[in-house]
Design a protein around this nucleic acid. Sequence first.
RNA 1: GUCCCCAUCGUCUAGAGGCUCAGGACUCCGCUCUUUCAAGGCGGCAACACGGGUUCAAAUCCCGUUGGGGACGCCA
Length: 467
Amino acid sequence: MKVVTRFAPSPTGFLHVGGARTALFNLLYARHCGGSFHLRIEDTDPLRSKAASIDAILAGLNWLNILWNGDIIFQSKRYNRHIEVAYDLLKRGAAYYCYCTMQELEEMRVAAKNAGRPIGYDGRWRDRDPREAPQGVRPTIRLRVQREGETILDDLVQGRVTVMNKQLDDMILLRADATPTYMLSVVVDDHDMGVTHVIRGDDHLMNAFRQAQIYQAMGWERPLFAHIPLIHGPDGTKLSKRHGVLGVETYRKMGFLPEAVCNYLTRLGWSHGDMEIFTTEQAVTWFDVRDVGRSAARFDIAKLTAINAHYLRRKDDSHLMRLALPHIESLIGMSVERVGRCRLEAAMPSLKLRARTISELAKAALFYVQPRPIPLDEKACQQLASVGRAILTILAEHLAGSVRVWEAQSLEDEIRQLAIEQNLTLGALARPLRAALTGAVVSPPIFEVAQILGREESLARLYDVLA
RNA sequence: GUCCCCAUCGUCUAGAGGCUCAGGACUCCGCUCUUUCAAGGCGGCAACACGGGUUCAAAUCCCGUUGGGGACGCCA
């Protein structure tokens, strides 16, 4: 059997991490099985669906390199097919017209809640004669749910789950305005697309039982289900805007790498022994949706950051340059000229070793491209007060008079020698030098910095401070 | 309220009856390296929610309790 999976977001917002992980698991499983993975946009609610959301979702998936097979399926374009099935169900006696008004249903819910009964439609039009229909009320079509017995679902992740059918109510298939509901559309589309494995968030677990009834009524074979646990916020509740997590693309802006995000998300709720760092290709060979854990995982930005640092260090310098440049330019508010770019490229190996995100890297790289005189932070100013300033004077004079090649190792040799002559430690000389050259008290190795800045720029920065 | 699910270090997890007085990763804390900061190396703190069973033996199986989460829309 060829495995077919799908990711079916509704275009009501951005692609959040939970959705991204669901998509990832669908992709991983399909590819693991040599099957196909599809994308379907669930835009059956015209009131909530937005074109901008579709763009955001596609952008997010593309960024993460979660690529689907074939064309995108828009549920809204399958409208006629959904309606056809609704009427088919009606004809089979598996569905019926319901003339309840919204207000009536609301009252029903309140009454049920107060009486301690399950909140849901009480089936009042289930067997009622349609001739009793009130005037002027456009009916909905509801499924005539099998109320006896129980439904068993052998979920690939949750295991065997049993629900009494009397817990299910007759859900609406077609709204009063004749548009299909999600509950109908998913089933029809999954069936027509030949979806074999429905992998989705476990907030849909109960829906599987309702949907099972539609499959049954239509005489269709039901796909296998895998309800994966939701991702929770640090406080243990379902991830929401309240947690400040936005679209997956926000993580791009925050300086995360897509491969790091994918690695982290895949590792959330799933593992392959002690493996922490792996490529998507490796995950494809190891992944089985049956191995996904049943308990919810909390989103931990610290671990994501650590994984990101790992990938950042291994990223090639020119690629990193392309990613970091926009961050840097927005920080200094101007474009980086050729000289600056050369410096950044030369500095990249030690810059990336000290950053965990592109943003951190950009911030740390700033001093390389800022125009003179570069700003000094508070600690650097302290460093360049009385004694530091005196040392800097000696350094400047010495370096300006030196004829040795301006290269990290020879600069270090020279300054070590100077330290001995002056009866000072290397640190005593290096600290003021660092402050003047970088404007800060922490930086990449200072002789490397001096080499990259070049003789002229370095001396100029020293004299800027002395002036 | 009704139904469903879950439960190993702070977090992500390994563990599918004996190999485990529970392993890895992140975080945190030491030490080391060192011109600063990182990285690297070494080390440390830290968990089987609780109570009953079953068994020669339970983190692993069963029941209950507690705690947490999710679903109950003419949303998806």
